[in-house]
């Protein structure tokens, strides 16, 4: 069983970190994983994205033609990646910033007001964890608890331990926003 996800948004929305935390949690959960960032000039202002592959066997390509899931935090990312998602796949749409619906009928779209949820928690910077929580609920690839532990460790290791409770709530907020 192999599952892939592309996480995409503006540079600064934390999409690369969200992918790293998912990959770390996947590894901690016993899976094989790869995390591949886009590291081109688009990191400076345009769209940033990363691809995470989670598998119970060694991962071949870290580059994916048809991701099983897509998390889009801004509209340019939806334009860029919507067509690539595998049939029957999942799209998590940041409804706070994206004012259109997914055009495809063969994927499950979840419209989550990611920025609104983050702001209600008190900090727009946790949009990435709200988005990741929503994905975890929709995709069921890695347990929420494993992701919370990986998030806490990532923040503590970089001296930002005081932000753990807020990010914990953000993961819960996203998770709870998908039925």
């Amino acid at each position: 069983m192999e599952r892939s996800v592309i996480i995409a948004g503006f540079g600064g929305q934390g999409v690369l970190l969200a992918g790293k935390i998912l990959a770390q949690a996947g590894m901690d959960h016993g899976l094989e994983v790869t995390w591949l960032p886009s590291y081109g000039p688009e990191m400076r202002g345009g769209t940033a994205n990363c691809t995470v592959v989670l598998s119970d066997a060694p991962v071949g390509s870290p580059i994916v033609d048809e991701p099983d899931a897509l998390i889009v935090l801004n509209r340019p990312s939806l334009e860029k990646f919507e067509a690539t998602v595998a049939k029957g796949g999942i799209i998590i749409v940041n409804a706070s910033l994206i004012d259109r619906k997914v055009g495809r009928k063969d994927v499950a779209a979840h419209y989550v007001p990611i920025n609104d949820i983050a702001l209600k928690l008190g900090d727009a910077r946790v949009v990435n964890m709200v988005a990741l929580g929503a994905y975890l609920r929709a995709a069921d690839t890695v347990p929420l608890d494993a992701v919370k532990r990986a998030m806490a460790k990532a923040l503590e290791d970089s001296g930002k331990g005081k932000f753990v409770p807020m990010n914990d709530k953000a993961l819960d907020g996203g998770y709870g926003a998908v039925s």
Binding site: K20, A23, M27, E32, V33, T34, W35, L36, P37, Y39, V59, P62, I63
Partner: peptide, 10 residues
């Protein structure tokens, strides 16, 4: 190459 240099893996 750049892909191998930049990607994360266990």
């Amino acid at each position: 190459d750049g892909l191998l240099g930049q990607m994360l893996e266990p």
